[in-house]
Design a protein around this nucleic acid. Sequence first.
DNA 1: GGGCTAATACGACGATTATCGAACAATATG
DNA 2: CATATTGTTCGATAATCGTCGTATTAGCCC
Lengths: 109, 109
Amino acid sequence: MSLHHPPTDELELTAVLHALSDPQRLRIVQLLAEQDTAVPCGSLPLGISKSTATHHFRVLREAGLIEQSPTGTTKLTTLRRADLDARFPGLLEIVLASPLLLAASASGS
Amino acid sequence: MSLHHPPTDELELTAVLHALSDPQRLRIVQLLAEQDTAVPCGSLPLGISKSTATHHFRVLREAGLIEQSPTGTTKLTTLRRADLDARFPGLLEIVLASPLLLAASASGS
DNA sequence: GGGCTAATACGACGATTATCGAACAATATG
DNA sequence: CATATTGTTCGATAATCGTCGTATTAGCCC
């Protein structure tokens, strides 16, 4: 069981931008950014079905935004901050710092 | 005949990211970034049908990335650099500075 | 083995999207 | 007016997309 993570030098800008353009996925990235360590997928309060969450995590992983490592029955997930910064310097930070309507509606970000 | 341009404080990050995530639209933005002044839509060497171009320009305009002003039979188009930088500081610059596969395939960018 | 939990695969659905060519609209010129 | 140019609208198409529930898989523990 190996999860595919694209190598840093193969990260495509359009894939990254597309992954970040969905409100749910942007929210996932935002929540992950608040964590100090890798966290299980299911621990994030997304409010969507598990299968939809799986779909979104997959898009994020294949675009190179997250790294998932199987740990027991769960998947510890974390942002590939260093890789993203190496490939697209500053992009993630700017996205995370940008005004987000959903953050406000999600309350207490 | 009035074209709708969203006000700066209503620009949505997901709309901007989505607009930039399409290879053609990213190319349009890149080409526009190289111009010193507003240029007619048709002057950009896109290699797609005019109706498809119209569609893309519309997406970019509605997301707030470009401004179009009717001039005679043409539409002078320019990037809303200042507005984008005011709303999402640094985002456009980073996107323009990022490695683009299409730029290489388009040759001589 | 059984039981439990976390996550995925699968099929389905409605909506959206990028693309095109043909017809059309808007503008300018003689 | 007719003609030319630029850009848009329209209808169509195939593909993609986000979402869901159900069945299944993977891993762990007793």
